[in-house]
Amino acid sequence: MPGGGFTIVYLGAPEGAEAARAILPAGFTVTHPEHAPEPVALALRDADALLDASMKVPIDDGMIANAPKLRIISCATTGSDHIARTKLNERGIQVRTLREDGELLRNITPAAELTFALLLACARRLPAAVKAVQQGSWIREDFPGLMLNGRRLGVVGCGRIGGWMARYARAFGMDVVGYDPFVSAMPAEIRPVMLEELVETSDAVTVHVHLSDQTRGLISADLFRRIKPGAIFLNTSRGAIADEKALLEALQSGRLSAAGLDVLDGEPDVQDHPLRRYAETHDNLLITPHCGGFSPDAVRVVCRRAAEKIRDHLQGVAS
């Protein structure tokens, strides 16, 4: 414990820093730099650990090379694809994520709730209808809504979030099918089908898989060409899981009636992203800023767990 303590760099909302400080014992200092590459790199130079609840700042090999004391990175997220691994692996530095904490995550529902909110907003054209009234219009015929009862939801990735989506959909009277070759036992609400059948027969398709070499581009241009005409597409996982060029073409052609996204490939640098530009002038694409998992209640829970892993590692306790 050089200098009599440990320094933890925290990235994320203030609630997470508060939760980390509450769980960490005396001798642990939590710093909260500006969420930009240079301030984060500077803070990491004297850090023993990084607690990342943001994913907004790429952690590259240069940052790691200039952080000689760094011993662990603990992510209060399930994903960690923003973190380069070469230098970490060379030094044997652990990267821990919430994918290890299935029991804790089971009842963390904000991401699923936002996804279903996007489905409802797309089905009822809510933002456009609200905007029309704000502008003084009152013509309900301009905003025909899709009744979800009796429709089919196709769930790609039938783990925790996909399971919640299935429960919500069944409560709305929807039929639910799913595709996930890595789930040994499907949730009771989901009937398993092949991916091609799922996209061809579902009135809404929702994606809930981790980004990996196997899932990058999983929702391909071919699948967008085969998707049921008039379907709604939802992605709150990672932008690169879908072929975004094909997604845009499906919206432009009318093959998709609408899409709701909480992620874009290359985020947070999205100013010139083609999908973001399209959404400026078209109300059938709704994009939120990767905020699905962000709820102060949930942030406190997951940051407390991430901080526990740092505490135990630095103190030499197995966790």
Rank of each mutant, 00 (worst) to 15 (best):
F6H: 12
Y10F: 14
L11T: 08
A17M: 14
E18N: 13
A19C: 15
V30G: 08
V30L: 09
P33G: 03
E38I: 10
D52Y: 10
S54V: 11
S54W: 09
I59E: 15
G62S: 15
I64P: 13
P68M: 06
I72N: 05
I73G: 01
T86M: 12
D101S: 14
E103Q: 13
L104V: 08
L104Q: 12
R106A: 14
N107E: 14
A112E: 07
E113Y: 01
L114Y: 02
R124E: 08
R125E: 02
K131R: 12
K131Y: 02
K131N: 11
V133H: 10
Q135G: 06
W138M: 13
L153F: 04
G163D: 04
W164L: 06
Y168F: 14
R170V: 15
F172P: 15
M174P: 14
D175K: 15
V183K: 12
M186W: 00
M186V: 04
M194A: 09
V207T: 07
L211K: 09
Q214V: 09
R216L: 10
L218N: 05
I227E: 07
G230H: 02
A231F: 01
T236W: 06
A240D: 15
A242L: 09
R255D: 01
V263P: 11
G266E: 08
Q271P: 02
H273K: 08
P274T: 00
R276E: 05
I287W: 01
I287E: 02
C291F: 02
P296D: 00
C303N: 14
E308H: 10
I310F: 07
I310R: 15
I310K: 14
H313M: 06
G316N: 03
A318P: 13
S319D: 07
